[in-house]
Design a protein around this nucleic acid. Sequence first.
DNA 1: ATTAAAACTTGATTCTAATCAAGTTTTAGA
DNA 2: TCTAAAACTTGATTAGAATCAAGTTTTAAT
Lengths: 233, 233
Amino acid sequence: MDSNCHHHSFGSHKACIQLVPIFNHLEDEEMDDIMHTIQSISFEKGNVIYRAAEKSDTLYIVNKGRVRIYRLAESGKEQLVRILEPGDFTGEMALFSPENTKHESYAEAMVNTKICMIKRSDLQEYLLKYPSISLKILNVLSQRLEQSEKQTTRFATEKVETRIALFLAECLDPEKDTLEFTLPMTKKDLASYLGTTPETISRKLSELEEEKLIKQKPQKKIQILDLDRLLMV
Amino acid sequence: MDSNCHHHSFGSHKACIQLVPIFNHLEDEEMDDIMHTIQSISFEKGNVIYRAAEKSDTLYIVNKGRVRIYRLAESGKEQLVRILEPGDFTGEMALFSPENTKHESYAEAMVNTKICMIKRSDLQEYLLKYPSISLKILNVLSQRLEQSEKQTTRFATEKVETRIALFLAECLDPEKDTLEFTLPMTKKDLASYLGTTPETISRKLSELEEEKLIKQKPQKKIQILDLDRLLMV
DNA sequence: ATTAAAACTTGATTCTAATCAAGTTTTAGA
DNA sequence: TCTAAAACTTGATTAGAATCAAGTTTTAAT
């Protein structure tokens, strides 16, 4: 891995550990322990973090920035699987499988991004030393599995309009009581994520707007006008 | 083994533990430890093991039989998520999440089935006591996640015919060198699993047969005639 | 501020697969 | 073994969404 442009600052390593839910419940000394084996690398916008078929033996934790995880289907079509925000991690597949696994997806920095990396061997050691880390990771993985299966079911059973409506509803921050939000990605990416085309996204959003269920505003902002009816689409 | 035992299925508890990959790597004494907290229940064909929205605080391990895991979409349509064989487990979602989670799917015995159950609290204890169990579960979960994301990508990007062809190819046992296998489910279930209808399955299989890529035989047997071309569909 | 590239929109057309319908075959249970 | 139910097949029609095409708007880099 090219290390010409990254800075080793303990500060940011510690920040990284303290940031992520899978580590931040540990005692200070335990975090210090882990901190020393972490590498931090910066990626510029558009850079590839890893590719499918490359050997995978590292856990990647996003410290700063955003990362696009996508797959190529047998047909060559690309699908956006998810977007990682600070605190999210990827690379687990390989890590917890017996040796020599390959990546099945691609990871690409959407903006300038800082990643913390833990080597497979180091992580395995920590998992045995601090079993509570495993519980955290099990929690995250089981929720991701849950999420992924729900997504599969939607692809299998709902039409595009419904998938879009459900996606919009889930963009709402349950903390806030506002019905307005900013789309977290371009409509092209959204199409890829929802298994459709940009043209269809464009058309369906216009239809939803005509039916007075939503309002599209400048800069990817969307306001939901009638959540109940939107969920019945 | 001990057929006169008062604990009616003591023997089968041990069998259950020894059967499953997540436990069978433990020492004998460790297995004995776990064995005592396991409950074993039999379900007749068609019986529901759990329903969506029910409280979930148990890990279910299939000891004997087959279990259908399916979901209901927002639209009410049913989708077959997977089929559990002896040694497989389910219920993990709730187990590794903070308290009071509900099932999101349905589990139903496809034939007479024996299930071993471990309570959430007991399992949490074992995970901290025997950290290697966590590693095994992480391994299984990460592979299931991988599998689920691959399936999602296929729904998002491939047409039905391709999904069917890929499914058939994956039915081949890589151990054996035969190109013949038995469909593991009815075509109705297969349609549900692949997000299509029984009519379409029927038609596409006939088309594949006309193109001399496969041969349908009695009793759900299928022979693949040209694997390479099948994978290019 | 300028401008090229990327993102997005809208229309016309085509294609895939769902639905509806009416059979036939297979399976499981009495 | 018989029978009813379930599974499956095939055909006709329809609907949903992809594709192709040609524009417009937005974004980001210089």
